[in-house]
Amino acid sequence: MSKTTTTDSGAATPPKRSPPLTIGTHNGIFHCDEVVACFMLKQLPEYENAEIFRSRDINALRDKCDIIMDVGGEFDHKKKWYDHHQLTFKDTFSTVCPDFSDDFDIRLSSAGLIYCFYGERVIQSILLRERKMELSQPNLKLAFLQIYRNFINELDAIDNGVPMLEGGEPRYKISTHLSARIAMLNPSWQDTNVDVDARFQLAMATAGKEFVDNVLEVACSWIAARDHVRHALEQAKSVLASGEILLLETFCPWKAHLFDLEKEYGLEGVPKLVIFNDGSSWRVAGVPITPSSFQGRKFLPRPWRGLRDEELSQLAAVKDLIFVHHTGFIGGAKTKEAALAMAKMSMEYADE
Results as ranks from 00 to 15, higher is better:
residue 115 Y to V: 07
residue 55 S to Q: 04
residue 276 F to C: 08
residue 153 N to I: 06
residue 284 V to Q: 02
residue 102 D to R: 00
residue 177 H to C: 08
residue 31 H to M: 05
residue 230 R to Y: 08
residue 70 D to F: 14
residue 74 E to K: 14
residue 47 Y to Q: 05
residue 30 F to W: 06
residue 310 E to F: 11
residue 302 R to L: 14
residue 159 D to S: 14
residue 47 Y to D: 00
residue 315 L to C: 03
residue 229 V to W: 07
residue 43 Q to Y: 01
residue 168 G to S: 08
residue 291 P to I: 10
residue 84 H to E: 13
residue 113 L to C: 11
residue 154 E to D: 06
residue 143 A to T: 05
residue 346 S to M: 08
residue 118 Y to G: 00
residue 133 M to I: 09
residue 311 E to I: 11
residue 292 S to N: 10
residue 250 T to V: 13
residue 109 S to E: 02
residue 350 A to I: 13
residue 125 S to R: 05
residue 35 V to I: 15
residue 44 L to M: 09
residue 134 E to T: 15
residue 273 L to S: 09
residue 146 Q to V: 06
residue 111 A to I: 08
residue 42 K to C: 03
residue 21 L to Q: 00
residue 278 D to R: 03
residue 198 A to E: 15
residue 245 I to N: 01
residue 258 L to A: 01
residue 56 R to G: 03
residue 303 P to N: 13
residue 83 D to M: 12
residue 46 E to R: 05
residue 343 A to L: 02
residue 112 G to N: 09
residue 303 P to L: 12
residue 351 D to K: 15
residue 299 F to W: 09
residue 278 D to L: 07
residue 20 P to Q: 02
residue 68 I to R: 07
residue 275 I to A: 09
residue 274 V to I: 12
residue 4 T to I: 14
residue 325 H to C: 00
residue 166 E to W: 01
residue 285 A to R: 11
residue 187 P to T: 03
residue 274 V to C: 02
residue 286 G to D: 05
residue 272 K to R: 12
residue 68 I to L: 05
residue 196 V to F: 08
residue 321 L to P: 09
residue 313 S to D: 11
residue 248 L to P: 01
residue 319 K to Q: 13
residue 312 L to I: 00
residue 139 N to H: 15
residue 177 H to R: 06
residue 52 I to G: 03
